[in-house]
């Protein structure tokens, strides 16, 4: 990669992450066992932190040490980690368990009012959903992402964005659907060998949702390296040992027309096309129509009753 190419790639991924963060509200990251989404979440967090924001993280699934691993000190200094990993149920009696349970911790994060935009990352929503009712989780998320300014504080509506990681296979269609409808932006992670992909759906109010697919790999410092999507023959096929087959080799028809064939095709009038000639023919009944007769010759055994022509119908 030449420096200029690198810079261009850098600009593009920066743009992509910015567009994800720009809308505010809930950004839902849906991952799977095969394609884990924490790296992508960390890339988003890094981007938000580098733009000078403070990022608050509700960490339920990995230790603070493991979560901070890979970030440089600049980013790390802007992260506030609320540790729900070490002792969420107060088994160790460290007193670290939040009094209102995990959702209490989430509500408390929302109450602290600092000026400026805030980013809250939840790692992960699945952990919360397994232990709390779905409706409560959704209510708290709604309250978080539509935070109105508290009386007495700055009147400007503060922008809050919530990044939520969801392990999709763990939940039924109900909770996933409820969270999806709450989200402004949905990112579904997937990929093929060696390359990750993110399918992004933006939902802007009163606009059609925009779909977008990006291919990337996450670098060790959690910046993204945007890539070209794999060519068609590189798309995943179930068995890596079979070579890709060109489906156009033995066709019994032409895929394209020559210039002459094209002209011939264009010159043809199709039966359903309405032309002025056709119109004339229909409007003025021609000679053919006036001169036509119907000839009927009864069979020898036909029993025709002139007075009651419907006799044979048996009514």
């Amino acid at each position: 990669v030449t420096p200029s190419e690198g810079a261009a790639g850098c600009g593009r991924w920066s743009e992509m992450l910015e567009s994800l963060l720009a809308l505010g509200g809930l950004v839902l990251l849906r991952d799977s066992v095969e394609w884990e989404g924490r790296s992508f979440l960390k890339a988003l967090i890094r981007k938000a932190a580098l733009s000078g924001e403070q990022v608050r993280i509700l960490g339920c699934e990995v230790s603070e040490e493991e979560f901070r691993e890979g970030f440089d000190s600049d980013v790390n200094s802007r992260l506030v980690y609320h540790d729900l990993f070490r002792d969420p149920l107060n088994w160790s009696k460290t007193g670290e368990a939040p009094p209102g349970g995990p959702l209490g911790a989430l509500r408390a994060m929302c109450k602290r009012t600092d000026p400026g935009p805030v980013t809250i990352a939840i790692d992960s929503l699945s952990w919360l959903l397994l232990r709390q009712p779905c409706t409560t989780v959704c209510q708290v998320l709604h309250a978080l992402s539509h935070r109105t300014p508290c009386p007495g504080h700055s009147p400007a509506v503060e922008q809050v964005r919530v990044l939520g990681l969801l392990h999709e296979e763990l939940h039924g269609p109900g909770p996933v659907g409820a969270l999806s409808s709450l989200a402004q932006t949905k990112v579904t992670l997937g990929g093929t060998a060696g390359l990750d992909s993110a399918h992004i759906v933006f939902r802007r109010p009163r606009q059609r949702p925009i779909h977008q697919t990006q291919w990337f790999s996450v670098l060790p410092d959690f910046s993204l390296d945007l890539q070209e999507g794999p060519r068609l023959e590189c798309q995943p096929h179930p068995d890596p040992y079979t070579s890709p087959v060109d489906p156009t080799t033995h066709l019994t028809f032409n895929l394209r027309l020559s210039k002459k064939e094209k002209e011939a095709r264009d010159g043809l009038t199709l039966p359903f096309q309405f032309s002025s000639e056709k119109q004339q023919a229909l409007l003025c009944p021609g000679q053919g129509q006036a001169a036509s007769h119907i000839f009927y010759e009864p069979d020898a055994y036909d029993d025709l009753d002139q007075e009651d022509p419907d006799d044979d119908l048996d009514v």
Binding site: V33, E61, H167
Partner: peptide
């Protein structure tokens, strides 16, 4: 739930 929940926590499967 157990299998997938654990899979998400594991480093190696």
């Amino acid at each position: 739930t157990l299998l997938i929940g654990l899979s998400h926590q594991s480093h190696l499967i």
